[in-house]
Computed example of a mutant assay.
Amino acid sequence: MARKRGYVLDYHKVMAKTDFRVLQATNNLVTAAYLEQRRLDRKTKELIFIVSLTVMRASKGHIQSHIRVALDLGLTPEEILEAIEISLPEAGVVAFQTGFDAWQDIVRVEGLEPTVSVHDGGSGSN
């Protein structure tokens, strides 16, 4: 799993110990739908995974595992963010923030601090 996917989640480790047969079955499904080369390339599949996990408000760690794989595949942080932003119209700001938070922790982009100009009296567009 680690070799093919590029990551292993904590529940995979527990399932390997407690119910390996079911883990194998679910891994076979993931392999067929996600890992094997079919019509969509791996980069596209990673973006779809990131968006679907964002919309479902998956755990930060789960979203981050796919962000790391996407980066390893050569996707840029901006491309990944653009994919996450697709969640806004359909799933809303709260779902978007789930994906954005996971993304920001990985890419470590610093935000801009708001400034107030003395000349605009605090009501300008800065």
Rank of each mutant, 00 (worst) to 15 (best):
2 A>D: 08
4 K>Q: 09
6 G>M: 08
7 Y>P: 01
11 Y>I: 03
11 Y>S: 02
12 H>S: 06
14 V>R: 15
15 M>K: 14
15 M>E: 14
16 A>C: 04
16 A>S: 10
20 F>P: 09
25 A>G: 07
28 N>G: 05
34 Y>K: 07
35 L>P: 00
36 E>Y: 04
38 R>N: 11
38 R>I: 02
38 R>Y: 10
39 R>D: 13
39 R>Y: 15
45 K>Y: 14
45 K>H: 09
46 E>K: 10
48 I>P: 00
49 F>H: 05
49 F>R: 12
49 F>P: 02
54 T>A: 12
57 R>Y: 00
58 A>C: 07
59 S>K: 15
59 S>F: 13
60 K>D: 10
61 G>V: 01
63 I>G: 11
65 S>K: 03
67 I>V: 14
67 I>H: 02
68 R>Q: 13
71 L>E: 12
71 L>T: 08
72 D>A: 08
73 L>F: 09
74 G>N: 10
74 G>R: 01
74 G>L: 10
77 P>S: 11
77 P>F: 06
78 E>W: 06
79 E>I: 00
81 L>C: 11
84 I>A: 12
84 I>T: 09
88 L>S: 11
91 A>L: 11
92 G>Q: 12
96 F>N: 04
97 Q>C: 07
98 T>D: 08
99 G>N: 14
100 F>T: 04
104 Q>T: 00
112 L>Q: 11
116 V>H: 09
120 D>W: 13
122 G>V: 09
124 G>Q: 01
125 S>D: 11
126 N>T: 03
126 N>L: 12
